[in-house]
Design a protein around this nucleic acid. Structure first.
Lengths: 113, 113
DNA sequence: CGGTATCCCTATTGATACTG
DNA sequence: CAGTATCAATAGGGATACCG
């Protein structure tokens, strides 16, 4: 592994933004389903409450990972798209996917402590 | 990006285990500082309270990512080491490191929403 | 359709003191 | 040294109803 310094650590910067229950999974939808996602799409795909989704989307917007585009307000039509920074997140998800794939499903149980 | 299905998604498996504030950063110490870490090392390196560290270490132990080795109880001497599964986490941290490196420090502020 | 507004619950975290 | 015990604050999250 390359030189990772603790001061201003890039991993710390990443986890400060992303370590809630949903952010990784929201971003995953953009790589799995398409670059443009709508509020209702995400809600159905992920099965989370609208207020939670709203909070997380705003957070990802404020941190420059997603961009919100409002096309009409009546009826409302909004789309969320990955920014440059958001698009660069693909390799992280791939690495996480690979790791998760090799995680044993049965002999160790997540969240059971 | 490869085929990522939502049912039994490996990324979901990963985030179920790791999306708290500290787990990524604890694991990072094992790649940055060495494969064997002691309780006090981690506490000083990360600057978290002992109960929080204790909780997270137990969680990582229960999920098969770290192994705890107790060598003597008086004075106590314990070491935490990466399991096979834990060692495979390196690429994820590297990808996250790369992403974090390209994250702009100034124009967008994490955790400020 | 794309959200807000409430209400409420729980997990995570910090601070601090203490123990074998 | 390696934790545990308490106490308390707070952020994340679910459920539900509602709004423009």
């Amino acid at each position: 592994m390359k030189d990772i310094s603790r001061a201003h650590c890039p991993i710390r910067r990443a986890t400060d933004i992303l370590t809630d229950q949903w952010s990784f999974l929201i971003l995953r939808e953009f790589f799995l389903e398409g670059r443009k996602r709508r509020f209702q799409d995400l809600q159905q795909e992920l099965g989370l409450s609208p207020n939670t989704l709203s909070n997380r989307l705003k957070h990802l917007e404020n941190t420059g990972i997603l961009e919100r585009r409002l096309y009409s307000s009546h009826p409302p039509r909004a789309e969320y798209v990955l920014t440059e920074m958001g698009a660069r997140f693909g390799p992280v998800l791939e690495a996480l996917y690979d790791w998760g794939t090799s995680y044993p499903e049965t002999d160790k149980k997540p969240k059971s402590d």
